[in-house]
Simulated scan of single mutants.
Amino acid sequence: MLRNQNEELSEINVTPFIDVMLVLLIIFMVVTPIVTSSVKVELPKAVSDQKQDINKPIILSINEHNEIYFGTELVGSENLAAVLDQKTGGDRENVVYLHVDKSVPYEILIGTIERIKKAGYSKIALCSKVEQ
């Protein structure tokens, strides 16, 4: 039976498709061993006996009357160094936290910081009191 020239072909030419699939198969065959090969990495072991910080934080407060407190204990500005040494056990690497009321004059705050620095404590953190 002969076909007419005007009739369309409904068949798909699969030869280029097979060529592309074979090329992809070869690529995957070459790449797969490269991807699955791994490099052995030795990770460091965790140390379980790390030094725990058992020291309580050193918190000094300056209230609106310019009084310096260590917790609830009133501390005079002249014996601030002695109180810090007593509370830290002479460890000058501790951080001294200052909770300062917003009404405290700048000069009082700077004077207190200077006294703490003269006592040998160089790690000082400033905080402001939150009104409730």
Rank of each mutant, 00 (worst) to 15 (best):
I124S: 03
E73T: 10
N55P: 00
C127D: 05
P16T: 05
V30R: 02
I18E: 09
I54D: 09
E11A: 08
V83E: 11
I68E: 03
Y69R: 01
I68T: 05
L22Y: 00
V35A: 09
G111Q: 06
I12T: 09
N63C: 06
A46R: 07
N55C: 03
P105L: 12
E78W: 07
T32A: 14
G76Q: 06
Y69G: 03
V95L: 11
L43C: 04
S128K: 15
A46N: 05
K45D: 06
K102S: 14
L98I: 07
K45Q: 14
S61I: 07
V83P: 02
M1F: 07
L126F: 02
S37V: 08
V83M: 12
L80Y: 01
Q86R: 14
Y69P: 00
M29H: 09
D49A: 13
G90R: 00
I68L: 04
G71F: 02
I110D: 09
E11G: 08
Y121T: 03
E114T: 03
K40Y: 07
V104N: 06
P57W: 00
V100P: 08
Y106V: 04
E107D: 05
L109V: 11
I62C: 00
V20I: 13
G71P: 01
K40C: 02
P57I: 03
V39K: 08
N4P: 12
K118F: 11
F28C: 14
V23Q: 04
F17C: 05
E11N: 10
E64S: 14
I18A: 13
K129Y: 05
G71H: 02
S48N: 11
N66K: 15
I54H: 15
D49F: 13
I108Y: 02
K87E: 15
A125P: 06
V130K: 12
K87V: 15
Q50Y: 15
Q50F: 14
E93M: 05
S61C: 08
N79G: 08
F17H: 13
Y97A: 05
V104F: 11
D85A: 10
E7C: 00
V30G: 00
R3M: 05
P16S: 00
T15K: 12
I113P: 01
E114R: 03
H99D: 09
D91K: 02
D91A: 12
